[in-house]
Design a protein around this nucleic acid. Structure first.
Length: 545
DNA sequence: CAGCGCTACCACACCCC
DNA sequence: GGTGTGGTAGCG
């Protein structure tokens, strides 16, 4: 035991001295080149953190990929480049044979599945049929929980089977729909597969109370989990409770349609004879590595290829080859912005409770605002001025930047005035969308009714000072060393704030989490606690539960 | 010189009947 | 025996 600690300590000391010798020398300082120069980005890192920090400092729309090293022990290095450039070197399949997409935490992503079973242990299992049934079940659940319509033709079906193993990846190509991040995808998948989980573990049967008597509600604000007390000291128990709560919804839906879905086809045996699910539930963790189309694991020579029963065919394009289209479709975190993009969420009630607790404990303090700034403090201030009328002082809950369209989307809190209905919403928040390209702003909102009609307010011009500042941002760019103190104090921002801005602006989805992570970079020890302190309140999309 | 993020599992301590 | 805690091996 002591040896472990000593080894760890030594490791940390070594790293510390390494950082001292080369203090953040990898901070990327782009030249002030013309924007139309398509400068190439191709950079390797030994550490995932460094790769993501580089992405943030990079003005191109780049992504992190993991490459398996020659040594067969699962060691990886991290490549940062654009999708286009990766494909250019990747397509010949002479290099980059064992490549993984890193699905970034907190990034919007597609619904995806990793499916597998051992053929010898399940001689009677018909893999293709199981895929068909699973897709049917998932589509039905998407319809019932989110009113999202899709079918097998929207599911990119990739095969990596061997004689030993049936193995597939499914990547759902939903139209104008994405999940908030892959943690939410995991919550959704576990939720809709609960009937199958019951079949495996009889323990669950004892824990789940009869749902009769609970009212079904589409809204998470409904206090239907009031009876559950918060139990800080027992995380395991908490999880069990959240399962219990989540199980209420599918069971009620089942009873509503007079038939409970038979998910017994999902139960397979492992080579040791234990019962498992056909669906691998272990692929929904932060920064999950997901093998790329046409890549193989390092020890094996079986790559992911389009399955023979795949029914998804990407749109033909003049500029992009069909193979490239398949490649782009296979990328879980490759989400194109569209004006009507819907972000689906699926929280465990455990997380919801945590968030509510946190809001309750901090909402009165000043600290929240400090973390709610985007890299554009001037625009933040303008947006805040828009959501301040009389006594109502709105705030910025979080912001997203969409690279190709140059859109800043602000989620507003404490101010719900909606131009569509001419009054404030009772329980749904609004958004302010800032279009940097066209120098206008408009309002949208999270209310299901407004969403259903795809409401978007008239466009209003951005004030001259905001537009002008944006024009000058390239010139004003300098290296940033003063980020920490500035970011936590947006009110006192000066023009040096633009130094920070260029860091995060081109990130597909930058949240306060990402900012904090960077803020804590100089202090590795404070990283965890800082992230835990992020104030985060109720969910955006409210169609689930 | 150099991966990452979990979860299942174990050993142990404490508590209560 | 039940329950919580801290630490680790090993899986994906």
């Amino acid at each position: 035991m002591m040896g472990k600690w000593e080894a760890k300590l030594k490791q940390i000391e070594e790293r510390a001295s390494c950082y001292e010798r080369k203090p953040l020398s990898s901070v990327y300082r782009p030249r002030l080149s013309k924007p139309e120069d398509p400068s190439s980005v191709w950079k390797l890192f030994h550490r995932q953190n460094q790769a993501f920090n580089f992405v943030k400092s990079c003005k191109e729309n780049v992504h992190v990929f993991a490459l398996e090293c020659k040594v067969g022990d699962g060691q990886r290095i991290y490549l940062v480049t654009t999708y286009a450039q990766l494909w250019f070197y990747y397509k010949s399949r002479k290099h980059l044979l064992h490549c993984y997409e890193v699905i970034p935490e907190n990034a919007v992503c597609k619904l995806y599945f990793d499916l597998e079973f051992n053929k010898h242990a399940n001689p009677e299992a018909d893999g293709k049929k199981m895929v068909v049934l699973l897709i049917e079940h998932v589509c039905k659940a998407l319809q019932e929980l989110y009113s999202v319509s899709c079918s097998a033709e929207d599911v990119f079906n990739l095969d990596s089977s061997t004689d030993e193993k049936f193995s597939r990846h499914l990547i759902f190509q939903l139209h104008d729909v994405a999940f908030k991040d892959n943690i939410h995808v995991g919550n959704f998948v576990r939720k809709i597969l609960q009937p199958a989980l019951h079949l495996i573990s009889s323990e669950y049967d004892n824990r789940i109370p009869n749902p009769v008597g609970h009212e079904f509600s589409h809204f998470p604000e409904t206090p239907l989990k009031q009876e559950i007390s918060f139990n800080q000291t027992s995380p395991d128990k908490d999880i069990a409770k959240s399962w219990t709560l989540n199980s209420e919804i599918p069971e009620r839906l089942e009873s509503a349609e007079q038939s409970s879905p038979d998910l017994s086809f999902l139960v397979v045996k492992s080579n040791t004879g234990e019962e498992h699910l056909f669906v691998d539930l272990g692929v929904y963790t932060r920064n999950r590595n997901f093998r790329l189309y046409k890549s193989s694991k390092i020890g094996k020579c079986v790559a992911l290829e389009v399955a023979e029963d795949n029914k998804f065919f990407p749109k033909q394009s003049k500029n992009i080859s069909e193979e490239n289209q398949y490649f782009l479709s296979s990328l879980v975190s490759n989400i194109r912005f569209s004006d009507s993009l819907r972000i689906l969420t699926c929280d465990t009630s455990q997380n919801k409770r945590k968030r509510t607790e946190h809001v309750n404990s901090t909402s009165s303090s000043e600290t929240i605002e400090g973390f709610q700034c985007s890299p554009y403090p001037e625009i933040d201030r303008f947006v805040l001025s828009l959501v301040t009328k009389n006594d109502t002082k709105g705030g910025i809950r979080r912001w997203n930047y969409f690279f190709p369209e140059e859109l800043l989307v602000y989620d507003i809190c404490r101010y719900r005035w909606c131009q569509n209905i001419g009054r404030a919403h009772k329980s749904n928040n609004i958004m302010i969308v800032v279009d940097l390209k066209n120098e206008v702003w408009y309002q949208k909102c999270h209310d299901p009714v407004c969403k259903a009609e795809n409401f978007k307010s008239d466009c209003f011009p951005l004030p001259a000072e905001v537009s002008l500042l944006f024009l000058f941002k390239e010139e004003e760019f300098t290296a940033d060393e003063t980020w920490n103190s500035e970011a936590k104090n947006p009110g006192a921002s000066s023009d040096t704030d633009w130094d920070n801005s260029t860091d995060d602006v081109y990130f597909l989805q930058a949240t306060e989490d990402a900012e904090l992570a960077e803020a804590a970079e100089n202090s590795l020890l404070s990283y965890t606690s800082a992230v835990n302190e992020i104030p985060d309140e109720l969910i955006i999309e409210v169609l689930q539960e």
